[in-house]
Design a protein around this nucleic acid. Structure first.
Ligand SMILES: [Mn+2]
Ligand SMILES: [Mn+2]
Ligand SMILES: [Zn+2]
Ligand SMILES: [Zn+2]
Lengths: 137, 137
DNA sequence: TTAAACTTTGCAATAGTGTTGCACTAACTT
DNA sequence: AAGTTAGTGCAACACTATTGCAAAGTTTAA
């Protein structure tokens, strides 16, 4: 993905595209999976953890990335689709491979609709499936 | 729940019922919800964190409790049903109230069956719904 | 063009969770 | 009773997430 494409994308979501942010977005998008802060940090070696952290937070606040809590001990981040507003309709299953630790968005698998008992409201959900991915099988 | 009932229960699952373990189990069972290590710790004031931690681990290993990773930052523990073996058929939805922070087992809501793409195996899953509970509404 | 105002970044510190080594004690075995 | 094993308390540690603050960079408005 071209830098100026990324810049446009960030701007369209009201995040000023600084060099660091562009780099973080690019790395995450190109990885094709969900990455933790620590994993992202390792991929540059030169950028401060807190800078990456704040970039991710601003992405999250502006529906540029979503988080996945896959039980690995650290939250992971994955890029959203263009039209995503991180609401119920954008939710999808995530797959966590217990062999390689990779976490993948299963965008083809929307989170099934669940009828909650009276009195509960439904804002958000995480559906994580643990298993072994094709690469590790 | 009577102490000797608890002791029988633990024994039936191959965990020797010490005083600490019985206390931890009792507290968790009586709370009626999922509790974190820190939350349990607060409920006694006199028992070591690591002791509770190890009790919970032995419970988990022996299908006496299951864990819930509700995104609150700490893993929570909830008692299993008697016949539970923590496999796919025992999995159920968990509800996390974003107001009060309570996490509840929705045992009446089994995790829906999902058909994964070719090549993925399915060992385990977590399905957490975030929203507001009746108490907080 | 320059000064003021605002934003971003780097660094250091902190809080919290989870986890382990080790010594001491309790319980069980022979 | 002595030896062996299992459980507990304490302290230490690793790691994640998060924040305050000052330096550097960018934007705005004279
Ligand atoms: Mn995703
Ligand atoms: Mn449960
Ligand atoms: Zn894998
Ligand atoms: Zn509530």
């Amino acid at each position: 993905m071209e830098n100026n494409e990324i810049e446009k994308k960030l701007e369209s979501k009201n995040v000023k595209p600084t060099a660091m942010r562009t780099l973080v977005y690019k790395t995450l998008a190109e990885s094709g999976k969900a990455l933790s802060l620590a994993e992202l940090e390792q991929r540059f070696e030169k950028v401060e953890r807190s800078t990456i952290f704040r970039a991710l937070k601003s992405f999250e606040d502006n529906f540029i990335v979503h988080t996945v809590d896959d039980g690995s001990g650290s939250v992971k981040y994955a890029v959203c689709d263009d039209e995503c507003t991180c609401n119920i309709h954008d939710l999808h299953v995530h797959f966590y491979c217990t062999r390689c630790g990779r976490t993948r968005c299963m965008k083809e698998l929307p989170i099934p609709n669940i009828k909650l008992p009276e009195g509960y409201t439904y804002d958000n959900a995480q559906f994580i499936i643990n298993g072994v991915c094709p690469r590790c099988d």
